[in-house]
Design a protein around this nucleic acid. Structure first.
Lengths: 338, 338
DNA sequence: TTGTAAGCGTTATCAG
DNA sequence: CTGATAACGCTTACAA
């Protein structure tokens, strides 16, 4: 245990410089010495200490990822996408969870700096001015993913799906299918990208169609089954005229809403159509199968990973926002009124 | 960028040793110098390089995790559980995905060693003799989680749910509810813990009850919806006398099986009862709600994390296997025949 | 209480 | 092609 380059050098009867050269193939070494060194390395299971390597080369082959919660399927897929890019390049990932708490996010941003990551993927929740400043203060490039900066548009590298357009398209889908009374059961207000932006898309679609936005058709809740259930309950109880369609902020919210409607003997999609968001694993497991706005978080991770890589290699300069696509998936919870 | 302890020392007019002391509070420093140093540190956003720290102290505050696939909910929850233990202690997690491939697992075991992790949590797939040897070769302690060694029982630290007992209990549940014809639609044969062990529990329960095991009631498939669907199809087509109950290897398999039965107009649970495994998020989203064997992978991560921590602190010596509990959750896919 | 200096395990720069 | 030796940024005896 703890065999070092010096041990190898001594045992092989060469200098540590030579050992280093055979490890890194950085300079020619005679076949004879090379083989001898390799043999000793094998026999002792020698592995170079990457701390020492990183200290001198300034290259750690490490990137960081900060997500609110790794057990959330969205971030699981995202992380997998990111890792798919870096793993094959020999990079390793330092994973941290922030619980979506600002102070924690800042602390982790600093912690990752101490770990000398070469770059960082950051899935924030509300990326306000404070956070943007913190990101810029760092020694390493960071790309924001899954969220965009709420107060400083375009100053920080971002990879995200177009939330406004996605929700716009969802509403547009219902409009095209003859719906006029469309309710919004979306994510929380304090979530800039997945809350505010989507609501904006909802409003825009309605306004473009000349349909006045009915504020009591708007319910903003947490991303959970229970919140979806309660939100639908509010929508149901507080509107004498029910909507014919509901767009939601996530499949989990949608399924909670469906549960409530089922309890109330409201039929889906005959009485009310429901549109989910994300296209979660279970979307096709439930009955009726859930129509939804598909977002590929894996692809988002891949794209963000590629962007970070460019930044690490200094191939990119301007802060830029890149979008990953979305797609309306029609299944069985939506019905045409035409 | 790249401000070092030396820069701070110079600017504060003290020695680097003093700076080190105020950072680590390792030895008393006069209030005057302390404040001066702090001020300079703040102003320059100085963060100690943890590579250099780790190199000299032999303490990296880093642990490794190897899982087959981080987007799989099981490993997401597991990782979250592990991280919940280490994050608050200032430890950081190096996450790697093996795709469940042996060569990759070995490669990552070595890679983590180079990164100087203090310990590792390993979620293998088939932990055979080769892999156990590799684990033991490492400089750091490793605990196996989610799986047990298939060829070397008890030689390596392990945290796992008792797969055999869990499946035994699932079958026992059906037996107690008057079922006699119970089929097994479980995971793949090459998965020691989640495949072989569970099948063993199935057989034991039946044998104890004096019920001869009907081999055509046994189907071993991948952990996927499609495989569950196909497996159920085989069970259905190749048995003139259908089972009254089916125990499955995962909720996903169960839901695939239910889909097939639904297509065949077989009613659940009136014609056939189904028992899932895991208690996935969607178990209560589907209709009827899925009865299942609940495993808390979060708790498993917590327990494994605690064990690794003990090993890192050298408070433990003997390789030991610890089990996390399981629980049969009765919902609506199971019916009593009594 | 403070500073000096010797490492930690590598790579990189020079000579040879 | 090979070997000393000086970094890398930090901690920690050992002195003062």
């Amino acid at each position: 245990m703890g065999v070092t380059i010096e041990d190898i050098a001594r045992e092989a009867g060469v200098s540590i410089a030579t050992v280093s050269r055979v490890i890194n193939k950085t300079k020619p070494v005679s076949a004879q010495l090379r083989d001898r060194v390799y043999e000793v390395i094998e026999r002792n299971h020698f592995k170079p200490n990457s701390l020492a390597q990183g200290l001198i080369t300034k290259k750690t082959n490490t990137i960081g990822i900060i997500v609110p919660d790794i057990s959330n399927a969205v971030f699981g897929k995202l992380t997998k996408g990111i890792n798919s890019i870096f793993a094959k390049l020999g990079y390793t990932v330092v994973l941290c969870e922030s619980q979506g708490r600002l102070e924690e996010e800042i602390k982790l941003l600093e912690l990752q700096e101490e770990k000398q990551v070469e770059g960082l993927l950051f899935a924030g929740v509300d990326v306000n001015h404070t956070l943007v400043k913190e990101m810029q203060k760092r020694d390493y490039p960071v790309v924001l993913v899954t969220q965009e900066a709420s107060e400083d548009e375009g100053v920080v590298h971002t990879v995200i799906h177009n939330n406004e357009a996605a929700m716009y398209d969802a509403v547009r889908f219902f409009l095209d299918n003859g719906h006029r009374r469309i309710a919004y059961l979306g994510g929380p207000k304090n979530d800039y990208s997945s809350g505010k932006k989507r609501l904006k898309g909802y409003r825009r679609a309605l306004e473009e169609e000349g349909i006045p936005v009915n504020e009591s058709y708007i319910e903003q809740v947490e991303f959970s089954f229970e919140a979806g259930y309660q939100g639908m309950k509010t929508l149901y109880e507080e509107n004498s005229k029910l909507p014919t369609a509901v767009v939601t902020g996530s499949d989990v919210i949608a399924v909670g809403a469906m549960q409530y409607l089922d309890n109330m003997r409201v039929r889906i999609p005959d009485d009310i159509s429901i549109m989910g968001f994300d296209d979660s694993e279970f979307a096709t497991y439930i009955k009726p199968e859930l129509s939804t706005v598909r977002i590929s978080y894996f692809d988002e991770g891949v794209k963000a990973g590629r962007m970070l890589l460019k930044l690490i290699r200094e191939e990119e300069v301007q802060p830029i926002t890149e979008y990953v696509g979305h797609k309306i998936i029609r299944r069985s919870t939506t019905k045409s009124l035409n």
